[in-house]
Computed example of a mutant assay.
Amino acid sequence: MALLDEAAPGVKVVVFDAYGTLFDVHAAVARHAGAIGPDAQALSDLWRAKQLEYSWVLSLYGGFRDFWQLTRDALDYALARFPSVDRAIADRLLGAYRVLDTYPEVPAALAALKARGLMTAILSNGETSMLADAVASAGIGEHLDAVLSVDEVRVFKTSPAAYALVTRRFGLKPAQAAFVSSNRWDVAGATRFGFRAFWVNRAGAPDEYADQRPVAVLPNLSALL
């Protein structure tokens, strides 16, 4: 029996976070690592950390700026922290971020879920056009029934309003949706909302949010099948 059937029987839709789950958020810097120099990985880590931090802080005080603007703002901050990196690289990094590589198993995993008769979707903090670019570049659109952006509700995950985009779009109860994310904080929010949440722990990170546990922990998306 597939892990999905065993851990979350009866689900009708499998919903994926985008950035870090389907798309490798470090791929943009990796493409230009030679031009960036020895601080490439540290720059990439800080860029991602600030991007997320901005989304959480905005949500807490009731503000909103679309995720593409946060991505630009976070890169500006990261470049300021690493003055050895030529700021002229910014436009190339932002262009690469719109067409991030997927993890190797992603297309086959999505296709397999569709072949089993399940609906599939993305639910992302990502801005609508940046998601469209990423999906088109990866060639995975045919395997998705919906690409949902928090732009519609103007609040980021882990707000319940963000997760409710799924139940409203598909007309389902939360327990009828499996939610898959590599971000443990996102898994916690999805679990709290009532989704059957799976944590893709590619990095082997320690667990946290013990009060909001996933139904299963996966090394990659192939393990779901």
Score class of each variant (00 low, 15 high):
Asp145Glu: 05
Gly141Ile: 00
Ala134Asp: 09
Leu75Asn: 01
Arg72Asn: 00
Ala115Phe: 10
Val150Ser: 11
Leu43Trp: 07
Ala27Asp: 15
Ala146Lys: 05
Glu127Ala: 13
Arg31Tyr: 06
Val106Lys: 03
Trp47Tyr: 05
Ala132Asp: 10
Ala74Met: 03
Lys50Gln: 14
Asp86Val: 02
Ala138Thr: 01
Ser84Trp: 01
Phe67Glu: 00
Asp24Ile: 04
Lys50Leu: 10
Trp56Ile: 10
Ala33Leu: 05
His32Gln: 14
Ser55Pro: 06
Ala28Val: 10
Gly139Asn: 08
Lys50Gly: 00
Phe82Gln: 14
Leu144Val: 06
Ser59Cys: 04
Trp56Pro: 02
His143Gly: 06
Tyr54His: 08
Ala35Trp: 03
Gln69Ile: 05
Val15Lys: 04
Ala42Met: 12
Ala40Phe: 03
Trp56Phe: 14
Leu58His: 09
Ala30His: 10
Arg116Ile: 09
Asp39Met: 11
Ser124Arg: 03
Asp101Phe: 03
Ala136Asp: 15
Trp68Asn: 04
Ala33Phe: 01
Ala78Asn: 11
Phe16His: 04
Ser124Met: 04
Ser124Cys: 08
Val153Tyr: 09
Trp68Asp: 07
Arg65Ile: 14
Pro107Arg: 06
Val147Arg: 00
Leu75Tyr: 00
Arg116Lys: 15
Asp151Phe: 03
Ala90Ile: 06
Pro38Leu: 09
Ala74Trp: 00
Arg98Cys: 12
Ala108Trp: 02
Leu118Tyr: 14
Leu100Val: 10
Ser44Met: 09
Arg116Ser: 13
Asp145His: 04
Ala42His: 11
Val147Gly: 02
Ala88His: 10
Arg92Asp: 15
Asp76Ile: 01
Lys50Cys: 06
Leu58Tyr: 07
Asp145Tyr: 00
Ala112Ile: 08
Phe67Met: 06
Ala146Glu: 11
Val15Ala: 12
Thr120Ile: 11
Leu60Thr: 13
Val15Pro: 05
Leu148Val: 04
Val15Phe: 02
Ala112Val: 08
Ala27Glu: 13
Phe82Ser: 13
Gly62Gln: 03
Leu118Phe: 13
Leu100Trp: 06
Val150Met: 10
Ile36Phe: 08
Thr128Asn: 00
Leu22His: 01
Tyr103Met: 09
Val147Glu: 01
Asp45Asn: 14
Tyr19His: 09
Arg154Gln: 13
Asp86Pro: 03
Asp86Met: 01
Gly34Asn: 06
Ser124His: 04
Val147Met: 02
Phe23Thr: 03
Val25Met: 14
Arg154Ala: 11
Leu75Arg: 02
Ala78Asp: 07
Leu131Tyr: 00
Gly63Asn: 05
Tyr103Lys: 09
Asp91Gly: 12
Arg116Pro: 12
Asp24Met: 05
Ser44Lys: 09
Asp45Leu: 14
Leu70Ile: 06
Leu113Glu: 11
Glu105Trp: 13
Val150Phe: 09
